[in-house]
Structure formats: C-alpha cells, structure tokens
Design a protein around this nucleic acid. Structure first.
Lengths: 122, 122
DNA sequence: CAGTATCCCGCTTGATACTG
DNA sequence: CAGTATCAAGCGGGATACTG
C-alpha cells in the first residue's frame, strides 16, 4: 500500500533519499557492506584509497544517524568497532539496481533510433 | 543483459546516475514532466515558486545535455520553447519509485522490531 | 585502533541586472 | 517570451595535526 504523491511531494520524497546517498564517499562505503559484509574502521581505510580519516568518520556518522549503517563498539583497549548495514540499509539494493538498470537503458535507447532529429536546439 | 559490477564500478555507476539527478531544482522539474506533460519555460516559472531564471535555465540545460529532457524551439517572435521528457527520461520512473518504496520501508522496519538495542553507540 | 579539531578552497546556489 | 551575465555567499570536502 503505497503513499499518494503529488509532483511536489514526490520530488521532496526522492530528494530526501538522495540526501541520504549524497556525499563523496557514501556509496563506496555502502558497496563494501552489501551482502552482509562487516568492516572495521581500518578496513575502510584500506579498501578506499584516498579517503581521509575525517571524511570516513563523517560519512559513517551520517549513514549511522540515517539508520542505514549500524555501529558496534567493543569496549576494549585498543578499541574495536564494526560496521554493517541495517536491515533497511540492505533494502537499498533494489533501488540502486533500478538506477543502474536505467543507466544501462540509455545506450539501448540511443542505438535503437539514432536518426530522429526533430528540430533540437542548435 | 546486465553488466557485471564490482563494489567499485557499481558505486561509480550509481554516482553517475546521482550526478544527473543532483541539483537543487531538477527533480521538481522532472516531476512536472512525467506522464507526458509538456511545459514551456514560463510554465516552470509559475509551477516552481522561488526558482530564479538563471537556475531554471541552467538545470534545464543540464537535463537536456544529459539526454533526460528534450527542448523544442519554435522559431517565431516572440520565441516559444517546449520541454518534455525523452524516452529515456520517462524510463526514470521505476528507479524513482524504487527510492520512494525504500523510504516507505523505513517506518515499517522500525516499527516491526522497535526493541532491539544490540549495543549501539551511546 | 579509531577517531577529533582546524584551516582553507572550490563549486553550487542565490540575487540582481540586462537582452534578442 | 526565454533567456544571459556578473558578483557574492554558503557549504561540502581536502590537508594536516592531535588524542583517549
């Protein structure tokens, strides 16, 4: 049973989703967690070349605050922290797949009818 | 026939899609074009309160350059311009729907098991 | 190990004015 | 009607250094 959307509310709804996914490093982080993978802070530093500690921490905090990633702290010295997707975070897959499918569709549509110039802008 | 994705390439693929959709006004513009709607430049100015002429033109140019929106110019005085979705642009709907579905899923997952505190961060 | 704290820069956005 | 041009502000992100 889906909600009812007007042009304005639907745009707002999608914008809220995009805000959760925006951020230079969030998608790379997420794709390293899909499939039930569990990563530690230092794992991400190795898996994602170029990311700074500041950005890694910031993006993880935001994903956690948004309920997409869960953080599990083992209170020991030295500290150990594990990151994994929440159930909702895992449910993101179909939406991302749909985007990839849409991107793939581009080429097939362009090649399907490539000679259809109907007075486009110069 | 879907492509094959690694964590890195899938992230890049989704990022490319997000880049097409990012921009303060693009989604509002798109939702005013879904369903075969056709709009003129001045229509958007009325439909989208608060948008400046600069931003409207810029977002439309980008959507056009990305192949999502098509621009049809009638060479007359005063000029008349119509905007509509390309076939590929219309094909965006399922992807946006998937995002909205995911957002809706959040509440159902939260209410389903709301007492599952497994040592989250303080 | 797993972070915080500062400083700084570029890019997007907004405000305003002008035009074929 | 349908734009373009210019200038300034705000925010995300990068570099670097420090800490329980």
């Amino acid at each position: 049973m889906g909600k009812i959307y007007t042009p304005a509310t639907a745009a707002v709804g999608v914008e809220e989703v995009l805000r959760l996914l925006e951020g230079r490093w969030k998608l790379i982080i997420l794709f390293h967690l899909f499939g039930g993978q569990v990563q530690r802070y230092s794992d991400f530093e190795k898996l994602i070349p170029g990311i700074s500690q500041k950005m890694l921490a910031q993006q993880l905090r935001q994903l956690e605050a948004d309920g997409i990633v869960s953080r599990k702290l083992y209170p020991q010295v030295p500290p150990k922290v594990e990151y994994r997707l929440t159930e909702w975070g895992q449910a993101l897959c179909p939406a991302l797949d749909a985007m990839l499918k849409w991107a793939e569709k581009r080429e097939s549509l362009l090649s399907a009818h490539d000679g259809d110039a109907t007075q486009e802008s110069s």
